[in-house]
Design a protein around this nucleic acid. Structure first.
Lengths: 198, 198
DNA sequence: CAAGTTATGAACCGATAGGTCCATAACCAT
DNA sequence: ATGGTTATGGACCTATCGGTTCATAACTTG
């Protein structure tokens, strides 16, 4: 009884996400979104609402995917400490520096929109709280596996590691030399994750 | 032979800066800037050029002022370590959290505009490099004053502290509870600035 | 095959964006 | 006092913004 969509919703959402990610919210026009999605106005508005709603949808999907990825890594990683290190080193991982310059959609969006769009700030708080919880689990595992000094408080360290990642993201977005960025990330990690005294 | 300006240039620049700071670049309209500055279009364009040029001017002034302030603190502080701690704790200092939510004009702008406006990213790199240099000096002083473990490499630690500050700024902009923010900053600092073994 | 429903995208809309222009006012130097 | 020069701010301009409307096409179901 209905006419089905001609487009793949998730493909469109990814294309839209990339556009917002590359240009930022305000600098992305609806015309841009129509171009990268290949849709007409009726379809895009009909399926996702206006620009703001579409953006918030994309942002939430992005966060959920990030969280799921991290949780999956905690489950599959050989050692808890590996997940934590990867969490901080990840943004500097691409040797071309392109990933570092792109940064994180959530961090970029929060910096751009936190004041005027409280939903974005709230989403960031939600996401960071969830990330912290996962990091705590990874740190406790690391401690049990003998990779972390037992004196380190997992909750405190998790927040510190989140701050470290956000700092690396922020610095990486300036386009700083990627080797320096990586070295800095490693230096911070070494301080934040002391090995057990033996 | 000339007609003098009727407005105070630095007052206008501060008003414009605050507007960009509060709303971000794209979300600030020329109408906003005319309103907060109290100028007419002819005056604003005549004195500072277009929106982009005005913004870059304001951003550079902001950076220069920040740098000067930090340098002055290094000169006037009782101990080098105090400057470094203040550098990281500063963004979380306002007990109402308003300063933390506002963040840093440079960090916010870099997150919003780094991709599309290379001048902003370049300005951020320049500013962060200069800040790092000042931090190195403060750390060397701290070491000489017996407040810092001599094993700590000042250059490496300076970059780590910059990352820490940027992370605090980023997290603070989400509107997270200011006590948690401060506690996190302290925890990071304690790890990054170990006291000398005795 | 027909009826009913929804997706589609081009046409269209008012509002606002940033930016230019210009008549006038204000001022300094002679 | 007057001529030369610049600051001023409102009028004006075009492009583009996000968003709505609607005739049509496409499809499912009975």
């Amino acid at each position: 009884m209905v006419r089905p969509r001609e487009f793949d919703e998730s493909r469109v959402l990814l294309a839209v996400r990339d556009e917002f990610w590359d240009k930022g919210y305000a600098a992305t026009s609806m015309a841009d979104l129509l171009r990268v999605s290949g849709l007409g106005k009726g379809s895009l508005y009909g399926a996702f609402g206006d620009k703001r709603a579409l953006f918030l949808r994309v942002l939430r999907d992005y966060d959920d995917a990030n969280l799921s990825t991290l949780r999956a890594r905690v489950d599959s990683a050989a050692r808890g400490i590996d997940v934590v290190r990867e969490f901080v080193l990840g943004p500097a991982g691409d040797p071309t520096g392109a990933a570092a310059r792109r940064g994180c959609l959530l961090a970029n969006s929060n910096a751009e929109l936190a004041t005027g769009t409280p939903e974005v700030a709230a989403e960031a708080r939600r996401s960071y709280a969830a990330l912290t919880t996962v990091l705590v689990a990874a740190l406790e595992r690391a401690r049990n596996e003998g990779d972390l000094d037992p004196d380190v408080d997992p909750a405190e360290a998790a927040r510190a590691l989140l701050v470290a990642q956000l700092g690396i993201l922020s610095l990486g977005r300036t386009g700083v030399d990627v080797d320096t960025l990586t070295a800095t990330a490693r230096a911070v990690l070494d301080r934040l994750l002391p090995a057990p005294a033996r």
